[in-house]
Design a protein around this nucleic acid. Sequence first.
DNA 1: ATGTAGCCTG
DNA 2: CAGGCTACAT
Length: 592
Amino acid sequence: MYYSCNICPDGCSAESFSSSQSDPCRAVSVALQKESETMKILQKQIYYSNSDVCSGLISSSQQELNPSRDNGHTPTKRHPSAVFSSCGYPEGDQNSGHEAKRARVESIIKGMTSSPGMQCADMVKNQYKESDSMEENDKIQEKLLQRRTGVSGSRGHSQMTKKYPQSYLSAGFDKMDVPTKTLNDGEEEKYQTLNNRLETSQTDDCLDLSSELDSSSITELQGWKKVKLKNNFQSKPERIKLMANVLKFELSRAVSRSVDFIFESTPLLQTSTGEGTESDAFSEPSAHKNGNLQLSHGGNTVVPIPDVQTEALSLVVQKPQHEKDDEFVLQPTPRIILSPKPQVSLCQETDLCEDKLSEKSHFTACQHALSCLQEVGPVKLAAFNTHWSSSKVRSKVNSRRPYAQTVSVDPLLLERLCLPHVKIESDSLMKNNLYMLNEGLTTSHLKKAKLMFFYTRYPSSMVLKMCFHDVQFTRCITSQLIKWFSNFREFFYIQMEKFARHALIEGSTDVRSLTVGRESELFRALNTHYNKANDFQVPDRFLDVAEITLREFVIAISLGKDCDPSWKKAIYKVICKLDSDVPAEFKHHRSV
DNA sequence: ATGTAGCCTG
DNA sequence: CAGGCTACAT
């Protein structure tokens, strides 16, 4: 992988340039400098770009242009101002990002338009050959700048003028052959038009082209003309391919930037409701309204880890704001006891929701963000917030590998935060739209249903409505709840059958010797499934039911009843009579 | 026809 | 956990 830089428009690699190859470049340039005054100007620009830009461009290319690292994924959020803070353009740091973008595009184009090994001398010669065309361009530029000073309300022009002061635009910018800027809305079309013109006209007239474009495209035109001039050394199919690739890349990058921009600039995730939300906690850890979210920089860093469930839960929606306060929180009642766990591992807590967001790079980025928090504290919180929100966005379209982070957190905090209100689906953004609805079951409802299963395996529709009265019951919702308990039962009976057969294999003949205690492997399996966080005191009655069920299975299997396809139904009939009443805590809580 | 339970599968 | 499917009950 070669990284182009400004000084080598035809593809001299930045790697080589940044090392020992820089001297030959300069030597050749000095030699040619004596040949004309034009060349002197060129040399100044080359040195200017060398000292101020190249270092940044190299890092830019390494970080952002390496497709092998991107692996085809959407480019990650960039912080050009940080990366390019040393560029030193007179526009200041706020423009360094623009310089980076320009340089990035330039690097892409140049990297593809020439062989990586092309020597700087060739580049300088080519630039020298282009000097005539450049002079012509300068004249054109002057004419067009005169037009610019008139009425020009185009968005592109204002942006360009803002980005690049007129002097820079008319002088250094063009001559330095830093031709392009990032695509804005509708500019792909301009590029396409430009591209078509370049394709159809080998000896294009810049004025003709410019007359069809607004003034904001002048610099683009200059740059693309340079590309076109360089393309004169290539075959037409190669140019077509090049143009197609450039346009493809720019389009995809523009989309990516738009997504980043939306989630950076839109306060949707932070202040959409005007109240503190779980999303607030994720994105504004230092300013959580409830004060539950504290960031300490000592040993016990309390950091919100967004609980992202990527498993299929197509009907599980993010809870609306007005229900946030109604969150099902386990109360320390005689029957529902929050286990005394002053500190729990995130690894454990995040397992609660399974399949957390965890793209490898995302994890690395999160680690970096966490380290920033621990190192510098509030100063970097803003950056962390931005980074975090962006990370959440990226995780929407990324992999679902397990997420592991061993940071100690406040269990009460996790009780709120790790309830997966924020569901991020990895497969389908269209599917995700469901989670924006204000109706439907949330993952906290799911957790609650699992806890209810400890009391009732066959809840009636009445019980369901009492326990989930915060949900607008529709046929769909009802079916989903029924399906949930059906799945719970399925798992329950599968475990029972498995352990029953295992007991028989081990030679258990007396069913009375079969017991299900809290330390039994069977109970652990069940508890892991229904009470993964282990923050719920499972009622003894459930242990009794499990024990009875296990014995029923052992008896049935030992009698060979499992030959009958419907042999389990008899057991089901027995178990369904063992349901208990669901505690009042499940019903009386506002969301219970 | 509709609703529910259970089985199978991804 | 959800979807598809079948069987069964109402």
